[in-house]
Design a protein around this nucleic acid. Sequence first.
DNA 1: CCCCCTTAGTTCTATTTTTCACAAATTTAT
DNA 2: ATAAATTTGTGAAAAATAGAACTAAGGGGG
Lengths: 209, 209
Amino acid sequence: MRKIPKPTIRRLAIYYRCLERLEQQGEENISSKLLAQMVHIKDSQVRKDLSYFGSFGRRGIGYNIQKLLSEIRKILGIHKSWRVVIIGAGNIGQAIARFKHMEKHNFQVIGVFDTDKRKIGKQITNNLVVSDINSLESFIVHNQAEIAVIATPAEAAQSVAERLEKAGIRGIICFAPITLDCNIPVEYVDITVFFKTLVHSVVSQTHNV
Amino acid sequence: MRKIPKPTIRRLAIYYRCLERLEQQGEENISSKLLAQMVHIKDSQVRKDLSYFGSFGRRGIGYNIQKLLSEIRKILGIHKSWRVVIIGAGNIGQAIARFKHMEKHNFQVIGVFDTDKRKIGKQITNNLVVSDINSLESFIVHNQAEIAVIATPAEAAQSVAERLEKAGIRGIICFAPITLDCNIPVEYVDITVFFKTLVHSVVSQTHNV
DNA sequence: CCCCCTTAGTTCTATTTTTCACAAATTTAT
DNA sequence: ATAAATTTGTGAAAAATAGAACTAAGGGGG
């Protein structure tokens, strides 16, 4: 199989949320053209992205929404539920832990950890309490957590990542503003980077136009 | 001036956070090679990125950290402070409002808005209280807010975006899982998309290796 | 002073990603 | 039944991005 462009994967996740909406609206089929319009890209891009994985549409008709949802679930690996632990019970960590969309999208937050004695024991949701980070490894092994969220300060992130990897975690979402050294997949989400790139668009727009 | 690649801008923001750390550690200069290693890219990429904007280094020495920080600040437009309003006081909206790094990076959250009567009036931080969204436009105009964060449900996002644009907001960070129709710059941050792309890496890694 | 080592800036090349354009499949209208 | 209108899937072209290689500076040691 050909190599899949990274942007294609991200777009699949975006198509997915459009399809969910369309399904909810009771639509049955969608053309690449309409789907492309919904996300402001070219229709050829939509077709190419999907064609990396198979032929899911019918010429003259478009794509069956239910079927495409199911195919994308399999491609992305979200047809099963994933167990998530969160390290760091600050603003970001707590927000993710309480975030309704997580569970809805099959990401089950099963543990939240922190070093701060004042946070340990704090009730985050009905069935989530902040645990001591000392119990991190045993918890991961015992509950077979697969994904971890690093929401610690930058200073702590690298050593946490190493502990996570060693304990068997298979992928990391890193909110800490640092690039990690590790051998499992990492997605970086530095909130302030989005603000900074946005501001650049804002200022360069004014210059040019 | 040549056209600047979008990824270059994002990387500048990432170099910036490295440089901040190096500055704090008392370093004076940094080579493209070392900076590249910190973020796991090639050194030629670092030099190329910077060269779009000028010659900031000294051959044989590297880049002066203070100077480079200052140059990147100017390039990105973060040498001045930006006034931010947040629409939607749910988990994400509140987390951003309380997020320490915002103020530290010159993004000043000056207002939080919601439609929910139970949230309106709620104290978010020492000097932030959730306001009724009815007062959105007048607040923006009166306080000259420039950047807005949409942290509402997807259903509300488009109409909020239109109100923001009309009120004079110049850029939007959109956490709602939807693509907006509007004429000002938007950065999209769909948290669940990061989880989904991560999971794809995790499953495809196992398949191949 | 000269040689060697380091490193930025730049040009050229390679790779990746997007877009175009068209054949093939399917439905709808006449 | 045939023609017209849709719409996918894909190979080829174009555009964007990254990487390698080279040139020119700069510094330090003998």
